[in-house]
Amino acid sequence: MKKNHDKCNPLLLNRFFDQELGPDEHARVSKHLRDCPSCQKALRENQSLSALVADNFEKTVSGTRFDHIEDNVLERIRNDRIPWQIKLKSLFAPKRLLIPAGALVAIFILFFSLVKSPVPVSGPSAIINSFTGDISSVIIIETPESRQTIIWFNETADNKAG
């Protein structure tokens, strides 16, 4: 394979394939390719890999329904326009740290409790005032339909002795 010319350079070949070489390098690799079967093979493999992956993406996209994205996003946007509809979302708390916003949340709770409409009470099933723990992360989720609150925490790694 390596005769009187440049050695094979797979990294360079890869950039050649992606058309990311300057004119000089490009010419050099082209010249090398002419009589290097192994680089030719590598290039063909890149091409089939590319085609295969592109084909896969195409199939996945064509088998996916996107129509609800627009509706969902626009609905969220509309909801978001209402300022007091505060939604707690995936709140990551560092280890052993009281979420400083607790106090703030409390204010909103008072707000919610005062606006006690006799008709169905809006807002999530539970409002989190504070949260402390020996945990690595916590997510607060609200189920989309009836707004039930879920707290999901990851404990810090177990020390077996404890």
């Binding site: 996916t64 996107f66 994205i69 627009e70 946007i77």
Partner: peptide, 17 residues
């Protein structure tokens, strides 16, 4: 809102990929 609609239609499949 219309601009968001355009944005979504233009990019949704690309971002999905």
């Amino acid at each position: 809102e219309e601009a968001f609609r355009v944005l979504i239609r233009k990019y949704q499949t690309r971002l999905f990929n």
